[in-house]
Design a binder for these strands. Structure first.
Length: 546
DNA sequence: TTAGGGTTAG
């Protein structure tokens, strides 16, 4: 026997933390049910195909609540639900972020015998994947008797969504071996997998396949631009853009702009930016270019565009704006932007904490972190953990730094990685706590955290400050082994030898650098000059990034 | 009816 009760869903997606069962205990006047009983009665055509079309319209307009509520009514009053009913409903289940709804819909599909049909089964692969349930998504795929190209594409996307690009590539190789049909969707996913895997040759092969098939669609070209620019081949990416015969769209331009920024082609990014109507994603990339290039002049102009075009409520874009001001040394402006972000996410909080930390305002950074905890709607992540530690380090707040190093683990279950250890080791070294530093280092190794070059550099620097010759030489050896071409490491080592009076080693090191062709670039500051008539105005833009 | 391309903190 099989008993199933579908429950109505009244609240929008973000409130779906409440279980469906809890929802039923709420009183009706607290809720907004777009499809109530009377409205359902008023729907003129109540045959199943009209109702299915209505479900599709609601979900296409992004109204998942109404889609689910209409489905609930249909379940009560219709006896002929079919596969066309469930495809929009499964989408709604995911949009409502409530896995219980998905399970209810899936159960009903099994009861009605539509779960084995190819289209709703593919929708199940997708729904479970979007819920984060890779196992259920894969099960749905392997339960299929016959799999069409859309089903294969859905499972490829599922693997990519779960950070398994190699699985996606392996599956594509299987598809080719079995001479299965593939489509532009398939090639897009495989290109994305190649990008994640940094698999240049494989990606080139897909590019060749696209050329042979003559499928230079804008979506595929965007995936190619993204692939090449992520692998440092920005000229190839620009060539794709130049030779594209299809109409270029915003997403393609955005991909090219972010690719130029990623490859430090800031002027090119700005030129492409000027070709399009501003959109939030392009502006975010452009602001990122200003941050990297310390170009507050352009950054301020983008801020103006944001205000004029009403992008100011976009959290992600505002985070980039905040970061731009902070990186250009304008901490007050960064703070003003932060205050105006109405829906602050973990990146907003972390960026501002880090901005205070970098500018030496450790106490303000800590106060802000406390505020973040009090507001209680955003949880810190490993980057927040690092920003707080770094803020303590920059301001010499060793006691607080120690407290937070353990608190983040105990209260939030965040596991420190090499970057966290490097930061804490640096802090302890500067404070002369060399024995605590070593016991921390040994504890880290015992926990199987592999020391990164940043860890060895922090250890070496601590040994220089504390004149610990033996352990300093040990750290130096490891550091140079790990990064033999990084000039900064040789400078650290040279400073270490100088501190312990080994001037012969300093000279030896310099000649080794010369012999190996390793040069340390000089430091500097950017000053932006603007000409107004015959007068110049200077803008101090902070430190450059070499 | 199902599947695809772009963005922020370290």
């Amino acid at each position: 026997m099989f008993r199933l009760k579908l429950l109505p869903c009244y609240l929008p997606a973000k409130n779906c933390l409440y279980s469906v069962l809890k929802l039923t205990t709420l009183t009706r006047h607290h809720l907004s049910n777009h499809i109530d009983h009377h409205l359902f009665d008023e729907i003129p055509q109540k045959d199943i195909s009209s109702l299915n079309s209505l479900l599709n319209s609601y979900i296409r307009n992004g109204d998942a609540v109404t889609t689910w509520n209409l489905f609930h009514k249909m379940h009560c009053f219709c006896t002929d639900l079919n596969s066309y009913t469930f495809t929009p409903v499964l989408n709604a289940c995911w949009a409502l972020q409530n896995p219980k709804l998905g399970i209810q819909a899936h159960t009903l599909m099994i009861k009605l015998g539509v779960d084995t049909e190819i289209v709703p089964k593919t929708a199940l692969i997708d729904m479970y994947s979007k819920y984060g349930q890779l196992g259920d998504s894969v099960s749905a795929f392997y339960e299929m008797g016959y799999r069409d190209v859309v089903a294969w594409n859905a499972i490829l996307s599922s693997y990519l969504r779960h950070g398994l690009p190699q699985k996606a590539v392996d599956l594509f190789v299987d598809m080719r071996k079995e001479r299965l049909e593939f489509s532009e969707f398939t090639l897009c996913s495989v290109l994305k997998a190649c990008t994640s895997l940094k698999a240049y040759q494989k990606g080139k092969q897909i590019h060749a396949l696209i050329l042979v098939l003559g499928r230079d669609l804008v979506v595929l070209s965007t995936a190619l631009i993204n692939f090449y620019s992520n692998l440092g081949q920005i000229d190839e990416a620009v060539e794709i853009y130049r030779t594209l015969s299809w109409r270029k769209d915003d997403i393609m331009y955005n991909s090219l702009i972010s690719g130029c920024v990623r490859n430090k082609r800031y002027d090119a990014a700005m030129s492409i930016m000027s070709l399009i109507r501003p959109n939030a994603v392009a502006l975010t990339s452009a602001l990122s270019a200003c941050s990297e290039n310390s170009d507050i002049w352009i950054g301020k102009q983008i801020h103006g565009v944001m205000i004029r075009q009403e992008f100011i409520h976009d959290t992600q874009l505002s985070n980039a704006l905040l970061d731009m001001y902070a990186k250009c040394g304008k901490i007050r402006e960064a703070s003003l932007v932060f205050d105006k972000i109405s829906r602050k996410d973990v990146v907003s909080w972390t960026s501002m904490i880090d901005a205070y930390g970098v500018h030496g305002h450790g106490a303000k950074a800590i106060d802000l972190f406390k505020r973040m905890e009090e507001e209680n709607n955003v949880l810190p992540n490993p980057v927040t953990f690092l920003a707080v530690l770094s803020a303590c380090g920059h301001s010499g707040l060793v006691e607080l730094g120690r407290e937070y190093f353990y608190m983040f683990q105990e209260k939030y279950g965040l596991v420190p990685g090499p970057a966290h250890y490097a930061c804490f080791i640096d802090m302890l070294g500067r404070a002369g706590q060399i024995e605590e530093l070593w016991s921390l280092f040994l504890g880290m190794v015992e926990k199987d955290v592999k020391p990164s070059s940043a860890v060895w550099a922090a250890v070496l620097n601590s040994c220089r400050i504390n004149l610990d010759v033996e352990r300093g030489e040990f750290a130096a050896k490891r550091l140079i082994q790990l990064e033999p071409d990084n000039p900064g490491n040789y400078v650290s080592l040279s400073n270490f030898y100088a501190a312990i009076g080994r001037w012969d080693s300093v000279d030896e090191l310099r000649s080794i650098m010369k012999k190996r062709g390793i040069f340390k670039g000089e430091g500097g500051s950017w000053v932006t000059m603007h000409k107004f008539g015959d007068k110049f105005q200077c803008e101090n833009s902070g430190a450059p990034s070499f």
